[in-house]
Simulated scan of single mutants.
Amino acid sequence: MPLTADVKAELIAVRDPRPSARVAELTALLRFSGGLHSIANRVAVEAQLDSEQLARRAARDLLEIYGVRPELHHVQGSGGRAGGHFAVRVIEGGETLARQTGLLDQRRRPVRGLPNKLTTGSRDDLAAIWRGAFLAGGSLTDPGRSASLEIACPSPEAAMALVGAGHRIGIPAKAREVRGVPRVVVRDGDAIRTALTEMGAQRTAAEWDQLRQRREVRAGVNRLVNFDDANLRRSAQAAVAACARVERALEILGDTVPEHLKEAGDLRLAHRDASLDELGHHADPPLTKDAVAGRIRRLLAMADKKAEIDGIPGTESAVPAGAE
Score class of each variant (00 low, 15 high):
residue 203 R to F: 14
residue 204 T to G: 03
residue 205 A to C: 08
residue 205 A to R: 04
residue 206 A to C: 02
residue 206 A to Y: 01
residue 207 E to T: 13
residue 208 W to S: 13
residue 208 W to G: 14
residue 209 D to W: 09
residue 210 Q to Y: 08
residue 210 Q to T: 15
residue 212 R to D: 07
residue 213 Q to A: 15
residue 216 E to G: 04
residue 216 E to I: 06
residue 217 V to G: 00
residue 217 V to F: 15
residue 218 R to S: 04
residue 218 R to K: 13
residue 219 A to C: 06
residue 220 G to F: 01
residue 220 G to I: 03
residue 222 N to P: 02
residue 222 N to I: 05
residue 225 V to L: 07
residue 225 V to Q: 09
residue 227 F to S: 12
residue 227 F to T: 12
residue 227 F to P: 00
residue 227 F to W: 11
residue 227 F to L: 15
residue 227 F to D: 15
residue 228 D to S: 08
residue 228 D to R: 09
residue 229 D to N: 12
residue 230 A to M: 13
residue 230 A to F: 02
residue 230 A to P: 00
residue 231 N to H: 10
residue 232 L to W: 09
residue 233 R to F: 01
residue 233 R to Q: 11
residue 233 R to V: 10
residue 234 R to M: 02
residue 235 S to V: 06
residue 235 S to G: 04
residue 236 A to V: 05
residue 237 Q to K: 04
residue 237 Q to E: 07
residue 237 Q to F: 10
residue 237 Q to L: 12
residue 238 A to H: 07
residue 238 A to E: 05
residue 239 A to H: 14
residue 239 A to T: 04
residue 239 A to D: 10
residue 241 A to Q: 03
residue 241 A to F: 02
residue 242 A to I: 00
residue 242 A to F: 01
residue 243 C to Y: 07
residue 243 C to E: 08
residue 244 A to C: 03
residue 245 R to G: 00
residue 246 V to A: 05
residue 247 E to F: 09
residue 247 E to I: 04
residue 248 R to N: 03
residue 249 A to I: 06
residue 249 A to H: 10
residue 250 L to Y: 05
residue 250 L to D: 03
residue 251 E to A: 12
residue 251 E to Q: 15
residue 251 E to Y: 03
residue 252 I to N: 08
residue 252 I to T: 09
residue 253 L to D: 00
residue 253 L to W: 08
residue 254 G to L: 10
residue 254 G to D: 06
residue 258 P to H: 05
residue 259 E to F: 12
residue 259 E to R: 11
residue 259 E to C: 02
residue 260 H to Y: 14
residue 260 H to L: 10
residue 262 K to Q: 11
residue 264 A to C: 12
residue 268 R to P: 05
residue 269 L to T: 04
residue 270 A to E: 11
residue 270 A to L: 08
residue 271 H to G: 06
residue 272 R to P: 08
residue 272 R to Q: 06
residue 272 R to M: 08
residue 273 D to S: 09
residue 273 D to F: 02
residue 274 A to F: 10
residue 275 S to K: 07
residue 275 S to D: 01
